[in-house]
Design a binder for these strands. Sequence first.
DNA 1: CCTCCACAGGAAGCGCAGGAGT
DNA 2: ACTCCTGCGCTTCCTGTGGAGG
Length: 403
Amino acid sequence: MAEDSILEIFNRHVKRNGVFKNRDALSPHYIPSNLPYREEQVKELSETVAPILSGRKPENVFIYGKTGTGKTVVTRYVLKRLGEFAKEREIPVNTVYINCRIHNTRSSVFIKIGRELLPDDNFLGLSTAYIYERILGKVREADIRLMVVLDEIDKLKGISETVYALNRANDELEKGSISIIGISNVLTLKDSLDPRTKSTLCQREMIFPPYNAEGLRKILEDRAKEGFREGAVSDGAIALAAAYAARQSGDARYALQLLLRAGDIAEEEGASAVTEEHVEKAKERVEEDIILEMIEALPEQEQILLLAMAKLVLAKKGQKTLGSGEVVITSGEAYEAYSKLARELGKDPVSDRWFREYISELAMYGILNVVQAGKGFRGNTRIIKLLFSPVKIADVLQRVLVA
DNA sequence: CCTCCACAGGAAGCGCAGGAGT
DNA sequence: ACTCCTGCGCTTCCTGTGGAGG
């Protein structure tokens, strides 16, 4: 790496004459000031939660729709507005947003609520029942109307117990209330709930349809206005990103990511505006992002396997000073590397038989490629290839597995 | 040509967690 | 609250395959 190229990178960031004005506006966590093509849903959810302002307990809501249909952003938007409204008029409304992928047990949900309501208390190591009582005590004492959002509720272990406990609180409270908003993209979740939980959680239901290309375009236009500098993104680029995302089952998150990455690429190239070409290039990077995200969510053993593979590929590449590229890894070598790494990490490696099952699974996901070795190798030996940059895979997994 | 090797993948069984039934 | 059952992740054991090496 030449000194000059480093300077060039740093300089680009100093100049800050890039295409972005506010890059965060393209992030999936950003809550925009208006939500095109979701006016109906905003209205319906507002109607549902509004009774809280006159002291009545809102119905519980169950929201579902595919990824990138605006479930989370609509919910956060409405609750944000609700909170602001209530604060101005000094109505004791509290909202707690919980992502169940992170807080995936009943106790961790309660701890999260407890922390929100009683920020000075330390809830670690206390029993769930105690935390529950503390929450109830606070709600009663301050006459709080609490709204709990359980996002990705399908990831929550013990949905029934959690929902039941939160809902039961209302019977024990003479003042204050607790309502639940459940969000999921698993369409079959409702059927797998027991009838009691189902009727509690689904007092009201909302379905979010996917966006069409037109809707996606409007979303991107709005966000581009906030996120990019004036004229730094062409109409063609937006239309193309919208079209790709529409094909991706109307996923707005995908559309935004595409535009964000296109912007990154434009800045890297020192371009003054984002073009269709940038979007084209961004597609690959976004797909890579998605794969890396998926790898992060994989079971630990499969992550160890992939990390071992990535390290092996890198080691072999370094060793092979002579060109000819082609790094070949047989399943035997892979298993050896994997079991060694697993032991280093203090984990028991699985048997070679099960290792082969992992390999086929990862091949099915499209992360690995497996082919018959043929000449030069014995019997049915297969050679395994990583389909993605070993550097990036190693990078991500090193971080995940150490923690 | 025969044996060995290095692996693929089927079959059976085991321990465990979670749900159904009582 | 208890047993019973079932599915899942995994190990153990096994047979099959096809080139390597004598």
